[in-house]
């Protein structure tokens, strides 16, 4: 039993420091994906609710594709396909350049497109919850379209979309585990290395699960706090 505590310690004998480093990689990947995913998701939602049929079609094709493909396949396509595509472009200029796509960037792109396609659906249903009178009132006051969106619609939209976005964030956190497959040293990969070296697979994969669970719990506490404060602002108005 003593043995287990040595393995779980932070020292040179233990693996907790490695897994903690993995946790940092996981968190930074999720945090780096979030703003891109939110931005693209918002744009796609705008496209899908516009009056212009071609814009609507383009948005719908985007969500159909990236919600229909397995995340793992998207990741492989971005990772290997990106490697081939960039390699071919570079070879036009420099015949013997070797290209390797950074697995962090590949993970960010793949998780970003998946996140944004789900996110656009959340924003779309949030848009439906905002009564048209809000737009009409803002236009009647002489606000431009841009200002209406920024000052009137967006603050309400975020309130409505927040629960859906919280769910997506928790999913994103879990999906980052897939990136360990293309070699990013996140929680799962570090746990795998520890498992292989020490032959204590159950211990370390169990620990990895608990770290993910802890991240999920911390996030939900934070998200609840945000939702509460938003509701308080709502009541104060």
């Amino acid at each position: 039993m003593n043995d287990v505590w040595v393995l779980l310690s932070f020292g040179p004998q233990g693996w907790s420091d490695d897994i903690a480093r993995g946790a940092l990689v996981t968190i930074s990947l999720a945090l780096a994906t979030l703003p891109i995913g939110l931005l693209i998701g918002f744009m796609v939602a705008l496209a899908k609710r516009s009056d212009e049929p071609s814009l609507k079609l383009a948005g719908n094709v985007y969500t159909t594709i990236f919600r229909g493909l397995p995340e793992l396949l998207t990741l492989f396509v971005v990772f290997y396909g990106g490697q081939i595509a960039i390699g071919q472009i570079v070879r036009l200029f420099n015949a013997d350049a070797a290209i390797e796509v950074n697995s962090f960037v590949a993970g960010m792109v793949a998780l970003g497109v998946v996140f944004s396609s789900y996110c656009s659906e959340v924003f779309l249903s949030a848009f439906r919850a905002i009564p048209p009178g809000q737009y009409e009132g803002a236009y009647a006051l002489g606000l431009s379209r841009m200002k209406t969106m920024r000052l009137v619609i967006l603050p309400q939209l975020i309130r409505v979309a927040l629960p859906g976005l919280s769910n997506l964030w928790l999913n994103l956190l879990k999906d980052t585990a897939l990136v360990s497959v293309i070699g990013l040293s996140d929680i799962l990969r570090q746990a795998g290395i520890a498992a292989r070296v020490t032959k204590e697979a159950f211990l370390f994969y169990g620990l990895a699960c608990l770290v993910y669970l802890a991240l999920a719990m911390i996030s939900s506490v934070g998200l609840h706090a945000i939702e509460r404060s938003v509701r308080r602002q709502d009541a104060a108005r």
Partner: peptide, 9 residues
């Protein structure tokens, strides 16, 4: 709350 891939592993 935990990734399916971690559970499978």
């Amino acid at each position: 709350g935990t990734p399916l891939i971690a559970q499978t592993f």
